[in-house]
Nucleic acid binder design. Structure first.
Lengths: 222, 222
DNA sequence: CGAGTAAGTTACTCATGAGTCAGTAACGTT
DNA sequence: AACGTTACTGACTCATGAGTAACTTACTCG
């Protein structure tokens, strides 16, 4: 029964085109779980469905695999976040859109893992770090800063340093994303839905940079 | 010369009272540099001025040392942050005071290291994690929430969920602290002084929860 | 001053896991 | 179908570092 005639099942297959991706995905999982030092290459191999030796056909060593993973993963997602901002909307509306899009990105497990690894293994890979900073937070801050700048010009937002505002907006969004990813284990996030948190974020941010306390609020004097 | 008569210099000294603290400080340094898995007990020992065996006189193993360190360090600092808030000041002024005090704490190297380790080694020590969350961010959020609540009652702040506001305020402060600790390597922090960042934080936060856009008092010095 | 003991050291064992390499199996080619 | 090539395997080596324990040294107290 183990060797039936019709199933010419090979014990393994040659898939040189797909291996790198498979290995990188497995690496994200295992490095994410245990960190760079404690992760075992054999675990990555098993999770990728290959043997340890195969990893060395595609990556020179553990560190290189790690770096390649950090380099490769974010580029898959980011572009999509930026694309969908309506050119002709008001600055306030653009801000809402961008926060909503980023919120989706920033909550993905891979973002949380990547950020955690970057933060903790930082020291030893300065170039990698700079690249990540440039590619994720800086980019986000610049876009936010531009929206703020336009909002100031149009009178929607108060006179605030756009770069500083971009940094603030990014920071609050970003950290809430990290928290949301492990929401179940964080008391102050457990009872909130993703949308509730997003609403709170938008509300907070719009008030922080808004010209007036937002349309309705000028008469709240109980 | 090597064995002079009058210097009865012992090769090492018995200091059972001071060892734990010395070892914990060394542990912070080495774990902070390399992470839990990659840190070598011998490095910690050398940095503490003892031999490896001595560590095992005070801590059962590497993990226990790590946990004890995480548990012990924050308790040294935190209380001081909370003490100095004037009871009779306005909510806005209390908020300013608290942000300034926290800003000092959150920028210390040990905070940055601790937070980084907590974040990355988390998975494997759930109780430790919960304790930290409770002791640092939750505590901070609650205090901020209380100040906000008082400010709403007094009409200084707009009608906002105090817990949510506390979370927002904490998040933005917190992440800026982490960034400030490695400021030199972060492009968007390099050109700002600690006080400038603090001013930006205070400005942003007060506008976010303020009833009105704040009476032009944005540059209050030390 | 000289046991006795607490504190500390050093040399050791032993498990672990990165990296290697000789061999094996899939697959294209003719 | 036999051959050659290339993808892949898995058993090996070897360095490393946690944990241990037999030994040594500082200090105490009668």
């Amino acid at each position: 029964m183990s060797e039936s005639a019709e199933t010419n099942a090979p014990r393994w297959r040659r898939l040189p085109g797909e291996r790198p991706r498979q290995i990188l995905d497995a690496a994200l999982e295992v490095f994410g779980e245990r960190g760079l030092a404690a992760a075992r290459l054999e675990d990555i191999a098993r999770s990728a469905g290959v043997s340890k030796g195969t990893i060395y056909l595609y990556f020179p060593n553990k560190e290189a695999l790690f770096c390649e993973m950090i380099r490769e993963i974010p580029s898959r997602h980011i572009a999509s976040v930026e694309a969908m901002i309506s050119e002709d909307a008001s600055a306030r509306e653009q801000l809402r859109q961008y926060l909503r899009n980023s919120w989706d990105y920033v909550r993905t497990p891979s973002f949380e893992i990547l950020y955690r690894l970057i933060l903790s293994e930082l020291h030893h890979f300065p170039d990698l770090y700079e690249q990540f900073i440039e590619e994720v937070p800086m980019r986000s801050m610049r876009i936010l800063g531009d929206i703020v700048k336009r909002g100031i010009a149009s009178g929607e937002f108060r006179d605030i340093d756009p770069l500083a505002a971009g940094r603030m907006l990014h920071s609050v969004l970003f950290i809430h994303g990290v928290w949301a990813a492990k929401r179940a284990r964080i008391p102050f996030m457990r009872d909130l839905s993703d949308n509730q948190v997003l609403d709170q974020l938008v509300d907070f941010c719009l008030h922080a940079i808004g010209q007036v306390p937002v349309p309705t609020a000028s008469h709240v004097h109980t």
